[in-house]
């Protein structure tokens, strides 16, 4: 491996890892709050990407605004689904496994709705950054990838601050850890659950815009990425915030470097083999001590 490959792999792996992390965070906070494995998280990301793109078609927006529209789109989609489907299912006291299967259904429905609205062809995201690499210390570095890493980290930092220092964030944490105690303290668990979906949707929406700007948008862009984010969340120990973040970054790097070092043909397979190995050796993920949450 040359030094150039090392630098490229690091930046590329971190950038795609940030995107996995943002989606994995959503999966994680939903699991903590509701014990639902949200299989439609990748599709929420796709809706975020499409929302940002549609806004960009209507008016020429700067990138930050596109990102915000994408986040709003993802948040809105998530909350609509929560209110209309998951909450109703919970009210009907449907077994958890059925709700999880419903999330699979939602994922397929969202894909097909997106295909109807935005068509089956991949859609070009206008270049939000200059595409030619800049030379830094003799290495060609893509400004786009750097931006994704920066924005991804900023978003994750904001989420940490939100959970640590805002009343709503603390209430959401409390409701997720011990719903009964939280209820006794006057927290509306129903409401914090809905907010959890909003936050997860916003994160996924941001990931969608970042991913779209890096590659392009298509109705099925969320499927594989969603599964990989799931792996990332598992890698970090399902239910752990910092675990989901590190899991995403680690998975991005593992994937990229297994391509560089082993073989690009089996990049996906190597990533999954790593996952299974980690599950066998450290069943609760590599970034979490057994038995501890958060």
């Amino acid at each position: 491996m040359s030094a150039d490959q090392l630098v490229q792999g690091l930046i590329g792996g971190l950038a795609i890892g940030c995107i996995y992390s943002l989606i994995a965070l959503g999966i994680t906070i939903i699991i903590r709050a509701t014990e639902i494995l949200h299989f439609a998280q990748g599709e929420i990301m796709m809706i975020g990407a499409m929302a940002g793109l549609s806004a960009l078609w209507m008016v020429d927006l700067p990138f930050v605004l596109v990102l915000i529209v994408g986040m709003l789109g993802g948040g809105l989609a998530a909350v609509l689904i929560e209110l209309s489907i998951y909450r109703t299912l919970r009210k009907l006291r449907v077994p958890l496994i059925n709700v999880i299967i419903a999330t699979l259904g939602v994922s397929i429905i969202l894909q097909n709705v997106a295909r109807l609205v935005w068509g089956s062809e991949p859609l070009r995201y206008p270049p939000l950054f200059r595409s030619r690499g800049v030379e830094i210390g003799g290495f060609a570095v893509s400004p786009q990838l750097i931006w994704i890493v920066v924005l991804g980290f900023a978003m994750m930092a904001l989420l940490q601050l939100f959970f640590r220092y805002t009343r709503l964030g603390i209430a959401m944490q409390a409701a997720a850890q011990d719903p009964d105690a939280a209820r006794l303290m006057g927290v509306s668990v129903k409401r914090t659950t809905t907010y959890t979906f909003v936050v997860a949707g916003v994160m996924a929406g941001a990931a969608g815009v970042l991913l779209g700007s890096l590659f392009f948008a298509s109705f099925n862009m969320g499927f594989l990425i969603g599964i990989k984010a799931f792996v990332a969340a598992t890698l970090g120990g399902l239910g752990s915030l910092s675990g989901a973040m590190l899991g995403g970054l680690a998975f991005g790097l593992i994937e990229t470097f297994s391509g560089v070092l082993i073989s690009t043909a089996y990049k996906d397979a190597v990533g999954m083999v790593v996952l299974i190995a980690i599950l066998l050796l450290a069943p609760s993920g590599i970034f979490i001590r057994p038995g501890r949450r958060i």
């Binding site: 040359s2 590329g12 795609i16 890096l214 990229t256 470097f257 560089v260 690009t264």
Partner: peptide
Amino acid sequence: DIDFTAQLGR
């Protein structure tokens, strides 16, 4: 696949 940096790097 969407990320080809590994292949292109090689």
